[in-house]
């Protein structure tokens, strides 16, 4: 299977909207509803979070959704089972899918087995925030490449230019630029990140850049896209689907409010 991420970026698209949600939230069986609704609403990329008991890089919203998802019974095995079923029933589904998860559950699953399953299920990229670059390069890269999976690195306003260049060289897919040094879902004004995103844009990296953390609404999204190739919405999306109501409508309405 081709890597849809790589294919997507070949056309040098702009204003990409990437939505993150936690697998198994709000209900265990919502994965397929959310995936379908997101594609129908015209989202460009989808990031599925694998819940972890100790999500260090996440703020309260995603901590809470992870906790509920685990209580609902979500696990890597369960997510793979759901994705398998989803693919079988939605052959035309064409949006790139990435998984985001912490290293420990992936390690326990076994990195080789994990990547193999990802490839079989059409997962195009992985975001593992606590997998440092040097460990990726020495222990994981070969397996990722063998299974045609992009590893998505993060950069922050504190990342040095030298390291950004190094990350650029080792990236396939895109670079995930954290808009301010913070756990997910924080309140830092997006405008504070403008200088940093401008700097990233001016570095003319080979790898496309999406920015995330603290993007909530149309204004934030457009601001972000004026600097880089697209933006990622996570915590705010989780908040939207946490409310009472019809999940599908919530998703459609929210995505329409952004685009």
């Amino acid at each position: 299977m081709n890597n849809k991420l790589t294919a997507l970026f070949k056309t040098k698209p702009k204003n990409l909207l990437n939505i993150f949600f936690t697998a198994g939230f709000p209900k265990l069986e919502d994965t397929s509803t959310i995936l379908s609704a997101l594609e129908q609403a015209g989202v460009d990329l989808i990031e599925i979070g694998i819940p972890f008991s100790d999500p260090l890089a996440d703020g309260p919203t995603i901590q809470e959704s992870s906790k509920i998802a685990l209580e609902n019974g979500m696990s890597i095995e369960m997510l793979f089972k759901q994705l398998h079923q989803f693919r079988a029933q939605n052959a035309a589904f064409n949006t790139p899918i990435m998984l985001m998860g912490y290293l420990n559950p992936v390690m326990q699953y076994g990195i080789e087995a994990f990547c193999k399953r990802c490839q079989e299920l059409g997962v195009d990229g992985l975001i593992i925030p606590d997998l440092p670059m040097y460990i990726y390069l020495t222990e994981f890269k070969e397996v990722f490449e063998k299974h045609n999976i992009s590893n998505i690195f993060l950069v922050t306003p504190q990342t040095s230019e030298k390291r950004i260049r190094e990350i650029d060289e080792n990236s396939t897919g895109f670079i995930y630029a954290v808009s301010s040094a913070s756990t997910t879902g924080g309140n830092t004004a997006f405008t504070a990140a403008a200088g940093y995103l401008g700097k990233l844009r001016d570095m003319n990296l080979n790898t496309p850049i999406l920015t995330g953390f603290n993007i909530k609404n149309k204004q934030n999204f457009e601001d972000a896209c004026s600097y880089v190739d697209g933006a990622i919405i996570g915590s705010e999306f989780i908040r939207q689907i946490s409310q009472e109501g019809n999940l599908q409508n919530q998703i459609t309405n929210y995505i329409q409010s952004i685009r």
Partner: peptide
């Protein structure tokens, strides 16, 4: 051992 840190803590 090692330093399995998010990029956010790298510096």
């Amino acid at each position: 051992g090692g330093a399995f840190i998010p990029e956010l803590l790298y510096p």
